[in-house]
């Protein structure tokens, strides 16, 4: 069982610069055909300062920290047992390549179902820009399968 005292566990804030090359590779990885996601001229023509960060890439940026699974160890989550249960985003604006974004994460709930066979850990992330303004939030719920 994951110790419920980890509700409230906060990951140290970390800041990452959005890189154009990574956005181009991500566009390729998801089969993106809209040029504004990989061609800077098309992005500018669409009104963006540079390549826009696609809707789910914020989740990927959060994994750019040196060990994105370090908090699993701290909270007592075994990676081989983990599945992604739910994911949600709220957006305040669309960030672009070249921006530095800061992520702050906190475990907001831990609970179990099926008599403890499935445990759930819910983590909230807030994302701010260099001025400290809110860019987005996301929530992930992970499932830990026991048996």
């Amino acid at each position: 069982m994951i110790d419920r005292r980890h509700i409230g566990y906060e990951t140290p804030p970390f800041t990452v610069e959005v890189e154009k090359g990574r956005l181009r590779l991500f566009a390729k990885a998801i089969g993106e055909t809209d040029p504004k996601y990989f061609d800077e001229a098309a992005a500018r023509a669409a009104g963006y300062a540079s390549l826009p960060v696609p809707p789910t890439f914020l989740f990927c940026l959060e994994m750019e920290q040196p060990d994105p699974y370090a908090w699993f160890d701290d909270v007592g989550i075994e990676l081989p047992k983990v599945l992604h249960g739910e994911q949600s985003f709220t957006y305040h604006r669309t960030p672009c390549a070249g921006e530095k974004l800061t992520f702050r994460a906190k475990v907001v709930d831990i609970y179990d179902k099926k008599g403890g066979l499935l445990e759930f850990v819910v983590q909230d992330n807030t994302i701010t820009d260099e001025r400290g303004a809110a860019v987005a939030e996301f929530r992930r719920s992970i499932v830990i399968r026991h048996g």
């Binding site: 998801i30 696609p54 739910e86």
Partner: peptide, 29 residues
């Protein structure tokens, strides 16, 4: 990756409306 499938869902939305119109996006795997 579940998030690959969610990225496909995101593409489906952004081919319909431009991304800055998205206020929220959520899914269950």
């Amino acid at each position: 990756h579940g998030m690959l499938v969610m990225a496909y869902m995101g593409r489906t939305l952004t081919q319909w409306v431009s991304q800055e119109r998205m206020r929220a996006f959520s899914t269950r795997f």
